[in-house]
Design a protein around this nucleic acid. Sequence first.
DNA 1: AACGGTATCAAACTGTTGTTTTAATCACAA
DNA 2: TTGTGATTAAAACAACAGTTTGATACCGTT
Lengths: 229, 229
Amino acid sequence: MNMLFDDQQLDTRARLVKAAAAIFVEQGFGAAKVRDIVARADANIAAVNYHFGSKEGLYAAVIQYHSAQAMENLSQQVTGSRRRVPAAQLRDFVRTFLQRLLTDTPQFTMGKLVAREMVEPTAAFNLIMEKFVLPQYHALRAIIRSMVGAAPPEELVRRCCLSVVGQCLYYQSARQVVSVLDPEFDYGEKDIDRLAEHIVAFSLGGVHQLVRSGTTAARKPRPARADDR
Amino acid sequence: MNMLFDDQQLDTRARLVKAAAAIFVEQGFGAAKVRDIVARADANIAAVNYHFGSKEGLYAAVIQYHSAQAMENLSQQVTGSRRRVPAAQLRDFVRTFLQRLLTDTPQFTMGKLVAREMVEPTAAFNLIMEKFVLPQYHALRAIIRSMVGAAPPEELVRRCCLSVVGQCLYYQSARQVVSVLDPEFDYGEKDIDRLAEHIVAFSLGGVHQLVRSGTTAARKPRPARADDR
DNA sequence: AACGGTATCAAACTGTTGTTTTAATCACAA
DNA sequence: TTGTGATTAAAACAACAGTTTGATACCGTT
């Protein structure tokens, strides 16, 4: 239990964490098979129970390991863009979020694990929520709030946050659908950048639209608009 | 193999389809257990293989049964709102889409099955795609296209469609997250209507923003905007 | 009443999957 | 060298889940 990752000659424990991370991301915790993991790690079946106690313990280790670097990414992201215009902050947020969600390098494994937990929660759900989802959510909420001012109700800000996140997450959770509807999209850096541009522009328009209609329209009875009926 | 559903005293086959639909929606095909299904249907284990050949056969039967009424809902929806303003068509689309996705009545089971297939594809994925996803997508694409005119490239329209769908699907696929971030939201009719209003307004703003920036900004080199740096 | 087909049921079967066991191997200190 | 604890390996175990079996009940027909 000395250093976890060397580089070349990893010990069994480290190889297991690495292989498990990949398979958990690909298939989710439930569908992942321990035998597949140890096969990829080139280790023996008993190793996972010896080192981690159980499959769940291995999953916890994967999360814990990837948490560390993901967490510092997070904090440097938040502090890094404090001084900018809200719209630029949103751009940074979406770009980073999409990168973590869609890029395939092992550096961004945590983002995909979090996405999995959202759609298919496991025992680690609460931990993931408070360690990753909520901080991210609060960051995004602050950005949106600074864009709309103090007047609009909290609910509007919350809905906008979920709209932004929903747009992003769809490209990861529904990859199969995207690959049919948009076969060109190959999740490369270029594609991700273009997608980020789109989602930012779309969301900026959405937020502004809501501020506009929120200030002019009545509150309770839905105002009859031109597009009704 | 006479009539499938009576009403009150359903035969075993019908009870199985009904129970299976509920459990497949709740847990997904992979996680659903045949023993749970037959327990809810108050039937014997062997019944599923006797009537449907296999668990997969049962799943196919569930899809086939719910397809019928879902399909006619679809067509009447499309033909029903042809004559309206695009924005009103979008409103209808989103409202109906959300209703199918979030309402818990068995009438709208298909929507949730489709959502499952998007996130966790099974052998029925291709069928679901061409029978439900693609038609819906084309309908939405036509609406968006009629809003932006002929000038914007197809890619922009496609991105907008995915943005709309992503916003909606998130509330179904990530229910657990929503229940933490927004505990008030209880998926009642009121909530769904309000959510539809939000997503429509947000998306209208998003689409218009994209049309605006698309016509004014240069194409290849990203124009330096006020919010940069 | 006897027959034939359909449906149901309890029980067993089979493959899979997470886990455990037991022995062998290795590293290293006494 | 010897002993000790950590690690690995092969095999077995136990629980689970989908499927199959063989017997039995049901029901309309001859």
